[in-house]
Design a protein around this nucleic acid. Structure first.
Length: 587
RNA sequence: GGGGUGGUAGUUCAGCUGGUUAGAACGCCGGCCUGUCACGCCGGAGGUCGCGGGUUCGAGCCCCGUCCGCCCCGCCA
C-alpha cells in the first residue's frame, strides 16, 4: 500500500477519486454511528469518515483509534454535505469516505496535546521534542529555515561561491569565547577545540585561491546562554578575495533581499541604511539599534553642567555624560511605576534614574529645584518633549549611559506599542573602532578579531593613538538584532604584526596560536574579506518567534542541557582511561 | 558568579490570614450518541503540592538549603 496524496491537498475537484492517506490522528469524534477522524501529516489535515453502513469492518476497527495513532486509510473523496463544510480547513470542502483502515501504529496517551496554541512548559516540550515538533507551527518554522538555506545556497552558487567544509576538530585559540574541548585519545593530554567559527580556515581558503567560499556551518561557543544564544549555532559563513567593503555589503544586501522575497514575499528597499558605530551609540545607545521607532537619545551634558544638580555634576567630572530621551505619554506614570523603571535602569549598574514630567502647565519633578530658570525648558526643547511626556535621564560613564538608555528606549518602545512588527528594518553598522581598551588587563583588545584590517587612512595612528583607529568592519542589524558581521582582513604580514604588537600579543605567542595563518599570509595572500550571518537569529526574526530555540530542531536549555537525550552525561571509567583523563569532582 | 520569576492531577491553573477529605477546565478511561470539526450527554480513575530540612498542636501556604525551566546582568561578536 502506498500513499497517494498528502493530507493537505485534496479539494472539491478530486471528488470521486480513490485515495490512500497516511498520517497521525489529530482528533477522533465518535458519534456512535459515524466516526470522524482528522488525519494529519506535515501538509495539513483531512477529515476522514467511517460509516457503519457502507464500511462496517473499517468502522468497527475505527473504534479503537486514539490520538496520534498512525493510520493508513483508503477511501473515496466526497464533497461534504451542504452545511458541513469547514471553512477553517484548506481541505474543508471535502472528506474521505473510508473503505479500508490499517492501524500502522498505536500511541500512548500524550504528555501534552499536539496543537499550535499550546502553553505547555518548555521543559516538557524539550523532553518530548519529537511530539513538540509535530506541531504545525514548529514544522512551518523549520520548513522556512530550509527555504532560507536553499535560497542562500542557490544565490551564492550563482554568484560563484564554492561550498567548502572545514574541520570541526581543530585548534584551540584562547581569544574570544571559551572553547568546547575534545580530548585526543591517540595524543594523551592534548585537546582539539570545536570551532567558534571557521574564521582562520576561510582566510586560508582565500590564500589557496578559491576566491569565493561559503559554508552553512555549526559553530560552538562555551558561554552562558540567552534567548538568542545557543552553545552550538549555525552561521552562513562566507569569504571573498579581491573585493572591498562596499562590494561585500551590496552583495549581501542582494542575498538578504532574495531571502526576504522568498520567505516573506517582500521586496525590501536597497541599499540598506548605514550608521557608523559612533552615530549608533550616540543616537540609540546601542551598536544594534532597532530603527522601527524613534525615541532617539539626546546629549544634555552641556546644560547639565550649568545646573546645581550634584548627581549630574559628579557624573560629568570624570568624563561622564548626561543623556536622556522623552517617553511619549508616560507623564501619567505613578511614582511606583517610575520606581519600576528606575529598577530596570539599575540592572545595568545605573545609580538612579532622573525624570521630569512635562505637563500642560509646566514641569513636575523631584529634581526641578536644582535647575535654574529656563534650563528645564532648554532640556525639553532638546528632547523635543511634549506635554504628557516623561523625560528620562541617566548620568554616568558614556558606556553605562548608552547601555541603560538604550535598554530603556527599547522598553518604552515596547510598552508604548511604538514598534511596527510588520517592518523589516535592515541596517549596517560601520566604522567600528579597531580595538577597545581592556581596563582589567591594561591593554587593548581587538573589537572584532585580531585579523580585522584597519582603515588605510588610520594606519599611521596604530602606534600613536590606537583608540582612534577605525576597522574595516561591519555588522548587519535587523529589527534591533545583530544578524551578522564581518570585516576586510589584514592580508599583509607587516600590518598583521603591527596589530599583534598593538594587542600586546608577543610574536612568539602569535606564532604558537595561529602561526599557520601568519605563514600563509607570507605566500601571496590576496586582499580578502567576508561576513557571517547568524542563521538562527535571522530565521527567528523572519518567522516572528521570540526564542531561537524555536528555530532549532533540538535545542539546549539555559544550562546547556538537551532534555531529550539528557546530554551531557557521565562517561565510563574505561572511556576516561582511554583519554588519560582523571576527574576532579567532589561528590 | 549575580538578579528576577515560576515549579500543586497527564496538561494549564486556582488554592484566602497556616486549620476538616487539595479543587476547576482540558486530557485520559468506560457507557450512550449518524454530520461532527473546541462534537454532545452520563459516569469514573487520577496528587511524592520539585526535593531535603526546620518552625508549629497542625505546612501546598512560613523559614533555611537545594534542584530544574524561563528572562536578564556579567560573559559572549
Amino acid at each position: 500500500m502506498k500513499k497517494t496524496h498528502t493530507c493537505g491537498e485534496l479539494k472539491k475537484k478530486d471528488q470521486g477519486a480513490t485515495v490512500t492517506l497516511m498520517g497521525w490522528v489529530q482528533t477522533r469524534r465518535d458519534h456512535g454511528g459515524l466516526i470522524f477522524v482528522d488525519l494529519r501529516d506535515r501538509a495539513g489535515l483531512t477529515q476522514v469518515v467511517f460509516n457503519p453502513e457502507t464500511a462496517p469492518q473499517a468502522h468497527t476497527e475505527a473504534h479503537g483509534i486514539r490520538s496520534e495513532y498512525v493510520l493508513a486509510v483508503t477511501g473515496t473523496v466526497a464533497p461534504r454535505p451542504s452545511g458541513t463544510v469547514n471553512p477553517k480547513l484548506p481541505t474543508g470542502e471535502i472528506e474521505v469516505h473510508v473503505t479500508g483502515l490499517t492501524i500502522l501504529n498505536t500511541a500512548k496517551a500524550l504528555p501534552f496535546m499536539i496543537e499550535d496554541d499550546t502553553d505547555v512548559a518548555e521543559n516538557l516540550r524539550l523532553k518530548y521534542r519529537y511530539l513538540d515538533l509535530r506541531r504545525p507551527s514548529l514544522q512551518k518554522i523549520l520548513i522556512t529555515r530550509h527555504r532560507i538555506t536553499q535560497t542562500v545556497r542557490r544565490f551564492l552558487d550563482q554568484r560563484g561561491f564554492i561550498d567548502v567544509e572545514t574541520p570541526f576538530l581543530t585548534k584551540s585559540t584562547p581569544e574570544g569565547a571559551r572553547d568546547y574541548l575534545v580530548p585526543s585519545r591517540v595524543n594523551p593530554g592534548m585537546f582539539f577545540a570545536l570551532p567558534q567559527s571557521p574564521q582562520l580556515f576561510k582566510q586560508i581558503l582565500m590564500v589557496a585561491g578559491f576566491e569565493r567560499y561559503y559554508q552553512i556551518v555549526k559553530c560552538f561557543r562555551d558561554e552562558d546562554l540567552r534567548s538568542d544564544r545557543q552553545p552550538e549555532f549555525t552561521q552562513i559563513d562566507l569569504e571573498m578575495s579581491f573585493i572591498d567593503q562596499d562590494e561585500i555589503i551590496s552583495l549581501m544586501e542582494e542575498l538578504l533581499a532574495a531571502v526576504c522575497k522568498e520567505v516573506k514575499g517582500v521586496n525590501v528597499a536597497l541599499p540598506f541604511p548605514r550608521l557608523t558605530f559612533r552615530e549608533a551609540m550616540d543616537r540609540y545607545g546601542s551598536d544594534k539599534p532597532d530603527t522601527r521607532f524613534g525615541l532617539e537619545l539626546k546629549d544634555i551634558s552641556d546644560i547639565a553642567k550649568a545646573t546645581d544638580f550634584k548627581v549630574f555634576l559628579q557624573a560629568l567630572e570624570p568624563g561622564g555624560a548626561v543623556k536622556g530621551f522623552a517617553a511619549p505619554g508616560m507623564a501619567v506614570l505613578s511614582r511606583k511605576e517610575v520606581d519600576d523603571l528606575t529598577n530596570e535602569a539599575k540592572i545595568f549598574g545605573a545609580k538612579g534614574l532622573a525624570w521630569i514630567k512635562v505637563t500642560d502647565s509646566g514641569f513636575d519633578s523631584p529634581i526641578a529645584k536644582f535647575f535654574k530658570d529656563g534650563q528645564i525648558a532648554a532640556i525639553a526643547a532638546r528632547l523635543e518633549a511634549k506635554p504628557g511626556d516623561l523625560m528620562l535621564f541617566i548620568a554616568d560613564s558614556p558606556k553605562l549611559v548608552a547601555d541603560t538608555l538604550g535598554y530603556l528606549r527599547l522598553l518604552v518602545g515596547k510598552r508604548r506599542n511604538l514598534i511596527d512588527e510588520t517592518k523589516l528594518n535592515f541596517l549596517w553598522i560601520t566604522d567600528f573602532p579597531l580595538v577597545e581598551w581592556n581596563d582589567e588587563e591594561g591593554r587593548f583588545d581587538a573589537m572584532h578579531h585580531p585579523f580585522t584590517g584597519p582603515r588605510d587612512e588610520d594606519l599611521p595612528l596604530m602606534e600613536s593613538d590606537p583608540a582612534k583607529v577605525h576597522a574595516k568592519a561591519y555588522d548587519i542589524v535587523l529589527n534591533g538584532s545583530e544578524i551578522g558581521g564581518g570585516s576586510i582582513r589584514i592580508h599583509r604580514a607587516d600590518v598583521q604584526s603591527r596589530m599583534f604588537s598593538l594587542l600586546k600579543i608577543a610574536e612568539e605567542d602569535a606564532r604558537k596560536k595561529f602561526g599557520f595563518l601568519l605563514e600563509a599570509l607570507e605566500y601571496g595572500a590576496p586582499p580578502h574579506g567576508g561576513l557571517a550571518f547568524g542563521l538562527d537569529r535571522l530565521t527567528a526574526i523572519l518567522t516572528g518567534t521570540q526564542s531561537i530555540r524555536d528555530v532549532i530542531a533540538f535545542p539546549k536549555t539555559q544550562k546547556a542541557i538537551c532534555l531529550m537525550t539528557e546530554a551531557p552525561s557521565r562517561v565510563s571509567a574505561a572511556q576516561l582511561r582511554d583519554l588519560s583523563i582523571k576527574l576532579d569532582i567532589v561528590e
